[in-house]
Amino acid sequence: MQYRFGDKIKFIPAFILVCFLLIPSFAMAGHGDAKPVKKGILLAAFGSSMPEAQASFDAIDKAVKKAFPGVPVRWAYSSSIIRNILAKEGRNIDSPVMAMTKMMDEGFTHVAVQSLHTIPGEEYCGILETVKAFEGMPKGMSKVTVGKPLLYSNKDMQRTVKAIISNIPKDRKAKDAVVLMGHGTHHVANIYYPASQDYFSKVDPMIFVGTVEGTPSLDDVKVLLKKNKAKKVYLMPYMSVAGDHARNDMAGAEADSWKSELTKLGYKCVPVLKGTAEFPQVLDIWVDHLKVAFKHLGDH
């Protein structure tokens, strides 16, 4: 093979060209080291210390592995409080930093991290900043992407509303109220909860959204229940798992639980102890976000 440059002829040995053509896809790490492309998935949840919540995590794990056969899946809990509680029980769950460090040591070059949080709040933003720090690190990962939390876009909100409504107990009558307990936050992303109220109201005027630590509050919900003359109330978590908040703050026997407070006001309360991650239609939203993140990993 030859090329002309002006009046000169330069030859490129055939074996050099063959070498270039045969070089496999490599991810370049720091200091010129070349590592074969190795893709993986990290599922990052807030976490829960309650055994009953494991059903939600198992459902997520199963759905992700079905959608990405053959792709290694790792887990991390973003809550240090939850991790410490579990550690005392002999269960060691990695933080996002530790999980990413281990994946880096295992030679993963491309990692899609899926946030299993409900809103893009403090936990999600923390994960976003943490895992992206591993991208381009010397001898680290070439590409890291992060999948959006459950609620992010207008389409997410519409799909979530439809998914939750389809999983309300079938014996619920149209006049019965449904109260969804969200976590709530002081982060600006708390706006997703009053926004959720608006989305639900347009489809079902007897569904009300409250939060434990943000707004709308239980007091706001009480006003709406009274205004709409509800008598029976279904209490459901607006969280991925039916953990401590759902079992104690929402449905617990304590005097300040939502069930107790509403019962005192004359409402007949029916707790539904299932996290949103136990609903197949909700899982589909998270998996779809992960598919986008995984696609953006590329191969280089």
Rank of each mutant, 00 (worst) to 15 (best):
F108G: 13
L180G: 08
I23L: 14
I164L: 14
V212W: 10
K202E: 07
A174H: 02
V178W: 06
D219Y: 09
Y267R: 06
L21P: 12
D284V: 03
A63S: 02
R172F: 00
K173F: 00
H300V: 08
V287A: 01
K132A: 10
Q54L: 13
G275L: 04
T215D: 01
S142K: 15
K175L: 01
G126T: 00
E129V: 07
E261D: 07
H296I: 02
E89H: 13
K226L: 06
C19L: 14
S49T: 04
H186L: 13
V282R: 09
H117G: 08
H110N: 14
I127M: 12
P72E: 08
S201W: 04
D299C: 12
S166P: 12
L22A: 12
V146S: 02
G147D: 05
A53E: 07
T276Q: 12
H31F: 15
V146A: 00
S78V: 10
T276L: 14
K139S: 03
L150G: 00
G107P: 08
P205W: 01
K8L: 15
Q197G: 03
L235T: 00
V161L: 07
G182E: 10
K232F: 01
P216Q: 04
L42C: 01
I127D: 13
V212C: 06
N228L: 07
N228R: 13
V146E: 04
K8R: 14
V287D: 10
H296T: 05
P69D: 05
K65V: 03
S166I: 06
A99H: 11
K88S: 11
K148P: 05
V97G: 11
D284T: 08
K62A: 10
L265T: 14
I285D: 07
E123S: 01
E106Q: 15
Y192S: 12
M103R: 15
H245E: 06
A174W: 05
R83E: 03
R74N: 14
T145R: 04
A293Y: 11
E135S: 10
M104W: 08
F11G: 09
T160D: 09
K62M: 02
K148V: 10
P216V: 02
A87C: 02
V270D: 03
A14T: 13
Y192H: 15
F200Q: 04
V161F: 03
K35L: 14
T130E: 14
M141Y: 09
A34S: 08
A174S: 07
D58H: 02
V292M: 00
D219Q: 11
H31W: 12
E89S: 14
Q114I: 15
F68V: 02
K274R: 10
I164V: 15
Q54S: 09
K10Q: 14
L262A: 06
P13L: 04
S95Q: 05
S48I: 04
M50T: 11
K162Q: 08
P271C: 11
A67Y: 06
F68T: 01
D299R: 14
I16S: 08
K295Y: 03
